[in-house]
Write a protein that binds this DNA or RNA. Sequence first.
DNA 1: CTGTATCCTTTGGGATACTG
DNA 2: CAGTATCCCAAAGGATACAG
Lengths: 142, 142
Amino acid sequence: MSDPAVSRTLPFPPSGADGEGAASCSTDHPASRVIREILARVGDKWSLLVIGLLHDGPLRFTEIQRRVDGISHRMLTQTLRSLQRDGLVSRTSYAEIPPRVEYAVTPLGRSLSEPAIALAAWAAEHHRAILDARAEFDGDDA
Amino acid sequence: MSDPAVSRTLPFPPSGADGEGAASCSTDHPASRVIREILARVGDKWSLLVIGLLHDGPLRFTEIQRRVDGISHRMLTQTLRSLQRDGLVSRTSYAEIPPRVEYAVTPLGRSLSEPAIALAAWAAEHHRAILDARAEFDGDDA
DNA sequence: CTGTATCCTTTGGGATACTG
DNA sequence: CAGTATCCCAAAGGATACAG
């Protein structure tokens, strides 16, 4: 893990001290935009799931659908298009009958796995604590 | 391999060396549920934003609303309730007139900032690559 | 098998008015 | 100031049918 200049700062400077400089940001909330963009990209219901699944190796359309439990035909197509568009997965179609298409994560997509896994690890670690807090909040009127 | 010789466009090992162990999907999909739960929790439009904002220190309701650009009164209440319920932020109300309520991140909420920041760092780092990939995908029919 | 288009239900979320 | 409730619209997403 390489953490060059991204020290343990907060995602939100109190009054807009910009350190990212990702694009043309002349507005007031630079880090907000960053977080918003991640969420817009991988915050949907299936993207991270597909990325994680393909981490093991290339898979065909139907195989992905079989493995990602609950995803609809429509959403899988849509998710894969979106990921492909952003350069996170690659699509390779073979001119055969019946048609065969394989999807694989790109290096960029693979690099996303690292923070994603970190987040998943956090969830796994604190899952119980959240459930406890929730239970206490819900039925605390005792 | 009973596979016809078709040139693969991508140099990808079928099984990457996974060192994390937290989100590997090879055997079952235990990570799917975990990822789904995180996304359901912090994948919404405002939760991470509020968590990040409160990282600096406790803030009052109106102050949060002022700082999180674009959030509506309704969504702020709802977001704070949700975060409080999950034990990520704490709510302290002072019996004064006019009423004063302060919100602060709990240790649990603070621990979430770390992977969240990692994800934000990833986004900042690869933002340009994504934009490039997208531009190429969109207007590639030249 | 893979992909697109249509339909329809559910949910997220903004605006606003009202209460303590 | 902080919170709740109502209304309403737009986006997400599932089901299905159809095409290559």
